[in-house]
Each structure stands twice: as C-alpha cells, then as structure tokens.
Design a protein around this nucleic acid. Structure first.
Lengths: 217, 217
DNA sequence: GTCTATAGATGGATAGAC
DNA sequence: GTCTATCCATCTATAGAC
C-alpha cells in the first residue's frame, strides 16, 4: 500500500470469506479474496493492482491471467454479494409462514446474517458500486430493487391486514434496511455481540418499527 | 474525471453546500466545495487534483496556494462535517426539556436535519474518514464518540426512569444512528419526501424503537 | 500460469515567471 | 494568486520469455 501506509481503520472485521460454492478455485479464488480485503479496507481506487498482487504473493502481471482488469474483480465481488443477499432473503421469505410478522422477521434476520457473516463483501457491495460502469452495476441494482420489493411487499400486506401500523411504508422500509446495512460497518470481533444476538435484536427492532409489541414477535 | 467517464450515480443530492459561517471565503471556498462534490461523488482516491481544479475552473497548481495537499482538503471537510453534527446535537440536547422522549426526539431530529441539509458533507464525513492519517482522523472520531454518548445517555436515562423499554441500549443506539446516517445516501430531489417529513418520521421511529407509543412522542 | 520488463497514462506536488 | 511547465512516483495493463 503506497498511498496508505498506516494501519487499517475502516473495518473491524478480519475474515475475507466468501459464500460457499461461489468462490473460484485456486489462485483465482485467492486473488478474489485479496481484492475483497483491500477493496473493503481502502476502497476500489485506494487499492492498487500491485497491492492486490502483494497480498496474494504473486506478481502483478499474473493477476491478468485470472481477471482481465481490476474492475472485473470488483464486478465479480459485487455480483456475489448481491446474489447472496437476494438468495437468502428470497429463501427466507419462501420458507416463512404467511403471517407478515413472521415474514418480516425472516427477511430482517436474513439481511443481518449476510452482513455479519460476510461483512467485507457487504461493505464492498454497498460502498464500491459506484466504481463500476452502469452496465456492470445494473444487475446488482436490479437485485437490490427486488430485495426492496420483498421488504415493501411484506410491510404492505402487514398494513393491509391490520397487523402492522405504519404511517409510511416506504420510509419504514428504508429505516429497516438502513439498520441492517450498517451492521457490516461495526460488527466484528472487537465488540461483544454474537451474530445471534444482533439478529434477534434487529428483528425485534423491525417489529417495533411497524408497531408490533415485543411479545408478538 | 479520467478513470470515471460515466455519469455520477453515487448521489441523489446535488448541492455542495457547507454550513453557514464555516465556509472559507473566495477561491479557497470554491476549492473546498469542488472537493466536497467530487469526494462525495467518486471518493477521495477517485477524484484527482486535476479533477478538482477543473471543477473550480483554475489550474491544478493554483490549488496549492489554498491547501498544502489534497488530504488537507479532505481533513477540513471532515472536520466541518463532524463539528456541525456535534454542534447541532449538543444544542438540541441543551434546549430540550428534561424528559427523555423529548431529548431523544431532539437528537434524532438534529441528526436527520444535518444529513438532509448537507448530504454531500455527511457522505464524505461518513465514508472517506479512512483516507485520513490517524492523527487527522482522531478529532472527528472524538466528536463521533461524544455524539454517541449523548444518544446513549438519553437512552440510558429513559430506561432508568422507566419511560423507555430497551433490552439493549447499545444496540438500540446503533440502530437509531444507522437510520439517520443513511439518510445522506438516499435523500435528494429525486424522491418525494421533504426534510420535515423525514425528520418527523425518523423521530417517530426512534421512539418506537425504545417502546414509546406514537401518541406520547 | 508465472515471471521480468516496460509501455503509456495519470497521479500529487513543486519551481519559477508574472 | 494564478499561470506554464515539469518532476518523478505510481498507476493499469501489455509483451514476451520460460
């Protein structure tokens, strides 16, 4: 790291893990994890090709045997991150009972768990999307929109059934999403909460935001 | 912008305004506002000295008559941003009645208003702090900690007085802060809400998070 | 696939005239 | 304070040997 010769402070998390089944094998996977770590820590433009190569332990030219450009590394990370969030939220909703409170709990738990289990991936997906060209960013934005619609759908049906009480479903959805999204910024080994504690707490917060008393959640 | 030849997509806000009374006069002020716009849009490392000069309409060398380095521009922006948030939250608390619900409302309203009125400044303060050396970042982190303590103090006294019901004050504070912080990312002219609507809604959300029914807020 | 070497562009910052 | 001109480091990416 040439322009940043001090200790990392952007993250509290340490593991540059990727979801099972989507990590490339061999050197390509090591390159992707190194890019994940450095993009999360210093941002896309703050981490250079040489930084990534040094992290992997190979020459910078070798990177181009695995990815045609730095932006392709970012694009793959952002794709993985958004697909993981979308997949988990979709599954959570599919397996939840039909009551809106149960569905809301399932969606929030899924979002929080993705952010606690893959905090670096969530940071990159949330903060570095602007470094992609619009064509490369579009698929991620589409998945984001679908996640948003899942949440707003549950909120809307809860209000329609009279079990949720919300003056403005859109703002409530934004508030719930904001809480969960930020988890990636503070959750890590230097704080005392387990992912289960955070997940339970934030699911409870979401229910409170829609006016459901704690004992019903 | 050489590495980013597409349209901005990170922001919905447009005005690169700074709080009254803290904006430098003359060219220095124009430089600072240009840096604010470009750092918010492309990140500190994504915006070059030449980009900033082009935005101001002067030669890149002239920038150094006003700031000794690019990092000094960022440091001043981050200082202004954190001082504005801290000042408003402190004043809000000072002028609020002693009831915890009133104080919590005042703090959340102050935070949200700073983020709706100075969204670019809030984005830079929140997202680009890691580009500063630890010495330059320390004052901002100290102000952040004081803001956190103001919020946790109000939450704690509300719980102690039995008017707030929170299983975990720390996580509740994180959730409230997360909601407000994200406002800078989505509030702007392309969405239908006024700052008053957002402020009212989020103050209500905070009260719901501490278990205070809507009619008491 | 990995390396050495390097091209070619861009970066932050400075010198010195006006 | 502003400019032209420039230094030199670093950047992304490529060429070509092994």
């Amino acid at each position: 790291m040439t322009r940043l010769n001090w200790e990392p402070r952007r993250l509290t998390a340490v593991s540059a893990d990727l979801p099972d089944g989507v990590t490339p094998a061999g050197t390509r996977g090591r390159v992707l994890r190194a890019a994940l770590k450095l993009f999360a820590e210093y941002g896309f433009f703050g981490a250079s090709i040489r930084d990534i190569a040094r992290e992997v332990g190979i020459n910078s030219a070798t990177l181009y045997a695995h990815y045609p450009s730095k932006e392709h590394m970012l694009a793959e990370l952002i794709k993985i991150g958004h697909e993981e969030l979308h997949r988990r939220m979709r599954q959570a909703l599919a397996h939840a009972a039909s009551e809106p409170a149960v569905q809301l709990t399932a969606l929030v738990r899924a979002q929080v768990i993705v952010h606690t289990d893959y905090p670096l991936l969530a940071l990159v997906a949330n903060h570095e999307l602007h470094a992609l060209t619009p064509e490369r960013a579009a698929p991620a934005l589409a998945l984001r929109e679908e996640c948003r619609e899942m949440l707003l759908g549950v909120l809307g049906s809860g209000v329609a059934q009279g079990v949720f009480h919300s003056a403005d479903v859109t703002l409530t959805g934004i508030a719930i999403g904001s809480m969960g999204m930020r988890v990636a910024n503070w959750f890590g080994p230097d704080q005392p909460y387990t992912r289960e504690q955070v997940t339970d707490a934030f699911a409870g917060f979401a229910l409170r935001l829609v006016g459901v008393p704690a004992e019903e959640g």
